[in-house]
Amino acid sequence: MDGLADSSVVVTGAGSGIGRAAALRFASAGAKVVVADINADAAQAVVAEIEAAGGTAVAATGDLGDQAVADAVVETAITSFGGIDVLVNNAGVMDSMSAAADVSDAEWERVLRVNLTAPFLLTRAALPHMVAKGKGAIVNTASEAALRGSAAGAAYTASKHGLVGLTRSVAVMYRDSGIRANAIAPGATLTGIALTVDPDAHGPRVLARYRQNIGRLAQADDQAAAIVFLASDAAANVNGVVLPVDDGWAAV
């Protein structure tokens, strides 16, 4: 992909699923990749996979909802690779499809912390370095749940709508600094994300009515291809966009 050779890229949630696929694609394009994941073993395994293919990568681990960890991830890119050119906020967790009246404090706080607070903290940590360089690309993994109210529970839906708002705000605020911010909105995708649902609860019963519109299940690499495109110079004039990667679900 244009402009990615020798670039410094941070991918969160890169130990598995869409994040792993994106890390491998960036590395194959010649980028140097910080593989960030809360699972240290998974992150190291992806680093080893990239290095075995002749690429360059380092691991960074920890809870990205902690500002100190977010700062350390960005610092890893700077000390290891001389800067940060691309930030991919991909790490995420699913909710239990709970309706608003049924969401526990713990579920709400966990989903918002991982899906919205962590991308904000990483973006805040990366922006000064991108501004100083006069160039940068941020790609966030949103969801079909960011486009509608029928794709997930209240916590997940709110977190992904918030992530779209963050994406668009950054796009407007920093475009004069040469920074682009975009998001993908994946539809149903085969990943390792955990989903625990009580099918008899109010939320899952209501949402079941709308499942016939989801289209085919995507592979993680389908989403990764869109992420790498948005980060590349091929998308140099694409900014503030939320790109559905969903086999047409958003069009139904």
Rank of each mutant, 00 (worst) to 15 (best):
A60N: 07
M94I: 07
I78M: 07
V73H: 00
N39K: 14
D63G: 01
A68E: 07
V11M: 03
M94P: 00
A52Q: 15
A42C: 05
A21M: 12
G55E: 01
A43Y: 02
V33R: 05
D37W: 03
G30E: 11
A22Q: 02
G54Y: 12
S80H: 04
G83H: 09
E51Q: 15
V33I: 11
D66R: 06
F26W: 11
S28T: 15
R20A: 10
G82W: 08
F81Y: 14
E51Y: 04
M94R: 13
G92H: 04
G17S: 11
G13I: 07
I78Q: 11
G19Q: 02
G17Q: 08
L64E: 08
I84D: 02
A53G: 14
D85A: 09
A48R: 15
V35R: 03
S80M: 00
A42W: 03
G83F: 03
A36C: 06
N39R: 15
V33P: 06
N90V: 03
G55T: 06
Q67P: 06
L64R: 04
T12N: 07
I50N: 01
A53H: 11
A91P: 07
G15A: 13
A72T: 05
D85L: 08
A31W: 05
V34S: 06
A70H: 03
A52H: 11
I78N: 11
A77F: 10
V34A: 06
D41E: 15
A31Q: 09
A14D: 06
N39H: 14
T56G: 00
V11A: 03
D41F: 10
V11E: 02
D37N: 10
G13N: 10
D63Y: 02
N90T: 04
A43D: 01
A45P: 02
V73F: 00
I38F: 07
A27N: 09
A23I: 12
E75T: 14
